[in-house]
Every structure is written in structure tokens, then in C-alpha cells.
Amino acid sequence: MSSRRSSIDEEHEENHMDGDFEVEQDDGSRRQIRHQYRELMQNMQQNRDDMLSSRSNKLTDTLQAANQLFAEVFKPREAALDAQLLVLATNLGKEKASQLQADMTVFDPTSFAEDLLSFMGINRLENPDSDSEDEACAKGYLGADAWKKLGTEAEKYFKRTPTFHFMLGSFKTEPPIVRQKTDRQKRTSKVAEKKVMPAQLKKMEESHQEATEKEVERILGFLQTYFREDPDTPISFFDFVIDPNSFARTVENMFHVSFIIRDGFARIKLDQDKLPVIEPINQESGSQVDIDNQPRYQGVISLSHQDWKEIVDTFEITEPMIPPS
């Protein structure tokens, strides 16, 4: 800016040296220019704080506006105003610079706290009964999630690991409280009454169910026969269910045997080699078993094609104990 000014000054001087040459400028526009200069200066004084703030570029903007004005200045009266503005601006600039140096070295916790509150979203309210003993700069309402908001920002500056949480295995398994059995037995007797199947089979599910029941009975029959012939030898579970000729039938056998166990007609134990063996349970009263009072353990067995082959080989199973229906 200063370089530009000197070139204009030179121009002016040249003009004056010529003596006769004068720039044409009417009074109206001169008055306007002087008015604008005064406005700029008033603005500088009224918005002093704003101009001083390190966050504001208003001082620079003002000087740029003054520059543009100066392009229209040809007479000393206006030039004097320009000089006046410059003095004001320089003073402001000096003060701003010294403040910058103060910002550079001093950390102010109060200002930091203020800025933190702003970040967290404090709601500054007009409170006429504000407590004079209140150290906080202004009464305000800090929202419920204020600290969470700050924390979310803070996470970005840390190399913190998320944490793993679980419930399973955190406490010891204990048998649950056994509830009154009356309700259950009421329902089971209801089922026994309505056991008569409708004559007309409408659903696929029903006929499928009947077939399952038939098969379960058939298999139970075999189990009881084997055991009657040789009551002292428990039957190996795998010997019983495996069909060496068909993996699919083996799976079906396992499925049907699970019903037998579930309904309490047979049980599975582990022999001394920790291998599963199956044996029928003697029925006392008809087909009603006291399901609820028996201790029960759930065991799940699944078999892959590979497993099935391995077992057939290992156990040397040549014939199925459950002949296909």
C-alpha cells in the first residue's frame, strides 16, 4: 500500500510542478469522499474491540476501503482525512500486535473454560437474579449430554481401545428355582384327552407327525427287543443308530431316537470309556411318564458325513441294528 501511495504522491507533485494543471473534481463528490472517510474512522472507534480481536480481519478491511477511497483524493483537505485515518489504524494495529504477543505466550485457564462451555453447548440465559457470588462468568444451562459431547471430540486425540463386554461365563451356573408343577400337569392331561386325531387329515404336518410317531414306536420296539435278549449289556449308541449303508437313514435314526429319550422311554449314559450307551427305561404306569421330576441333562450330538464314515470303519459296523422300514 505504501508503495502505491508514493507513486500517487509523485504524480501529484508532478501535477503541481506543472503549475497550471488541476484535476477536475466537483464539490459534491469531494464532500462524499470526506463523509466516507469520517464514517470509516467512526466505525473504527465504535468497533474497537472487534477490530482488536485476533479473530477479526476488520482492520484490514477498513484499510482496504481507505485505499480505494484514496484513489479519488486529489486535494489536501481529503488527504488530511486520509492521514488521520492512517494514524488511527496504525495505533489499532500496534495494539493488536502487542496483544498477539500476549496470546502467544500466556495460556488463560479462564478463557479455556469459557471456550469449553461454548463447545459443550451452554445455553446462556438472561438471569436478572444472578448470584453475585457465582464464579461462573454467566448463568447458563449446560445440557445433559454436554460432557459426552466433549468426550466424543476428545476420543479423536487418544489411542484408546474399545472394551469387550459379555454376560455368558461371568457368573457360576446354578440350577434355577423349580416352579409349581400343577399348571404343567394340567396342560399335559388336556393334551391326553384330545389325543384323538381328526379323521380327515388336512395338513401335511399332521400326516408327517403320525409317520414320525410310528417310526419312533418301531425303533423303540427294536431297542426293547435287543435289551430283552441281553439285559446286561448296554447298547452302544452309535452301534444302534448308525446305518452303514446310508448316512441319511443314520441321521433319521438319531432324530427318532431323540424322541424316545425325550419322552423318557430310554436313557443315554456314558460307559467307562466315556462313550454313549443307550438303554430302555421300564414303564410302570401306561404311557404317562412323570417327565417333570426326572433329572435331565441335555446332550446334543451332530454327525458329519466324514464322522459317519469314520465310525463305520472304527466300529466295523456291517449291518444296521435298525433295519430300514
Binding site: W147, K148, L150, G151, T152, E153, A154, E155, Y157, R160
Partner: peptide, 11 residues
């Protein structure tokens, strides 16, 4: 809550 605590810690 741990997020909030981290905010306080960072301050």
C-alpha cells in the same frame, strides 16, 4: 459414561 469421563480427563 466413559465418554463423559474422557472429556473431563482431557480437560
Amino acid at each position: 459414561d466413559n465418554t463423559a469421563k474422557l472429556g473431563l480427563l482431557t480437560v
